[in-house]
Amino acid sequence: MLRLLNLELQKLLLNRTSKTLIFVSFVLPLFIILLSSFKIPFFGYFTLELGELGVFNFPMIWHLVTYFAAHFKLFFAIVVVSMIGNEYSNKTIKQNLIDGLSKKEFILSKFYTIVFFSLVSTIIIFILSLCIGLYYSSYNEFNIIIRETEFLLAYFVKLVAFFSLCLFLGMLVKRSAFALAFLFILFILEWIFYGIIWKFSTEDIATNIQNFFPLKSIYKLIDVPFLRIAATKMPDNQEFIHDYAVHWHEFAIVIGWTILFILLSYRLLKKRDL
C-alpha cells in the first residue's frame, strides 16, 4: 500500500502544476480565519459580526468550517482528473502496466492518494477549527469541544467520495478538461431530474429522491449552516429549526457511491484496450 502511495506521490509532487494546485487546495481553506474578522452589514438593520455572533463556538464551529472548507475541494478535483488525463495523454498508463503494475494496483494507487490527501485535508481543518474555536469560543470544556466532531468524519467521507467521482469521470473520458465538463453536466442533470420528478409528484418526494443522486448526496452530507447561525440569533423562531446533524444513512449513500465509482473505474480499465 505504501509502495502504491509512494508511486503516485512521486508522479504528483514532481509535476509543478499539480504541486501548485495541491498547495492551493490546502492553503486556501486557512483563509476561513478571515471570516472571523468580517463584519457583514445587513441593510442597516443590524451588523453581523461573525466572531461576536457565537458561530465560532464549539461545537458549531465544526459544522461551519467543514462546510466552507469543503468548497475548496474543487482545486484538488482538478488534480485528480488531470492525474488520470496525464496518464492517458502521456501513455504512461500503458508503460506502467507493461512495467508490471497490475490494473488493480493502478486504480488502488490513485485511490490511496485520494484517501491520503483527504486525510491530510481533514487534519488541517481539524487543527484550524480547533485554533479558531479555542480563540473565540465561550465554551472550552473538553466534552463540548469533542461534540459534533462527526462533521470532520463527514468532511473526510465527502472529500473521498467527490474525488472518487472525479477519478471515475477521468477514467471514463480520459481527458481532464472533458472530465470536469462532465462533472458540470452531471450537476445540471441532477437538477433537471429533480425538476422532472417535482413536476410529476411533490417537492418532498423530489428532494428525497434527489438526496440519493451522487453530487447531491455528497453535498447533503454537511448541511448549509446559515439557518443554524440565524437560529442562534433568534432561538425562538420555529422556521429555523432544522435537522442539521450528519446521519448514518447519508454516510451509507455516499460510501455506496464511492465504492461504486472505484469498482466502475477498475472495470473500465480492465475492459479497455490501451
Binding site: 509502495r3 508511486l7 512521486q10 509543478r16 502521456n90 501513455k91 504512461t92 507493461i98 512495467d99
Partner: peptide
C-alpha cells in the same frame, strides 16, 4: 520482462533519473 512498445512513454516533467526511479518502484 523488459519491454518497450512503439514510442517511449515517460513523464515529460520528470528527469531521466526520476523516471527510471519510478520504474524501479514499480518493478
Amino acid at each position: 520482462v523488459g519491454a518497450i512498445i512503439e514510442r517511449p512513454n515517460f513523464y515529460p516533467y520528470m528527469t531521466a533519473t526520476q523516471n527510471l526511479k519510478l520504474v524501479c518502484k514499480i518493478k
